[in-house]
């Protein structure tokens, strides 16, 4: 518990420092804001068991940056090519990640990955719109799921 409070407090204090652009003029107000944020976060998101690993976070961010760059370049190439090689299709993808934050992060990130946009999520079935049917969309979604599972300290089945 104390561990969680300290960790979250440090996180919010860092956020305050960034928002204040390093200025120390209003640190009193900052302390109040940080305390309020920690209290609110404990209420809304109680401490839970689970291993948070910095390595997994870095892996996710790196994967995300690389994939969103690929996604952007791909869609830019399609938009600017004289004959866009579009052959869109719908794909029903079975989601292995549990409901809650992991699933939310999956659907949110898929919108930025190359060639996929989430259309609707019903239970464990996610309908994806794929920009080009020749793309390995399901395999890429699987790879993303694995990275997210590691971030939340779980393994995909």
């Amino acid at each position: 518990m104390l561990n969680t409070v300290l960790r979250r407090g440090a996180g919010f204090a860092f956020l305050w420092w960034v928002l204040a652009e390093g200025s120390t003029v209003a640190w009193g107000l900052g302390a109040v804001a940080v305390a309020a944020c920690v209290a609110a976060s404990l209420r809304l998101l109680p401490p839970r068991q689970g291993t948070f690993s910095l390595a997994a976070l870095i892996a996710f961010v790196a994967f995300f940056l690389w994939q969103s760059m690929r996604g952007g370049l791909q869609v830019a190439a399609m938009a600017l090519s004289p004959r866009p090689g579009l052959s869109p299709c719908m794909l029903d993808y079975p989601v292995a990640l549990p409901p809650g934050p992991p699933r939310l992060l999956l659907v949110a990130s898929l919108g930025l990955m190359p060639g996929t946009v989430g259309v609707r999520l019903d239970d464990d079935r996610l309908r994806l719109h794929v920009l080009d049917a020749r793309l390995p969309a399901a395999a890429e979604a699987k790879a993303l799921e694995a990275v997210i599972a590691r971030l939340f300290g779980r393994r995909t089945a």
Binding site: P98, P99, R103, L104, L106, V107, A108, L121, D123, D124
Partner: peptide, 12 residues
């Protein structure tokens, strides 16, 4: 994004 988060949260 909150509106869509609700959907990812609940299952079944």
């Amino acid at each position: 994004g909150v509106a869509f988060a609700r959907r990812a949260w609940r299952a079944g």
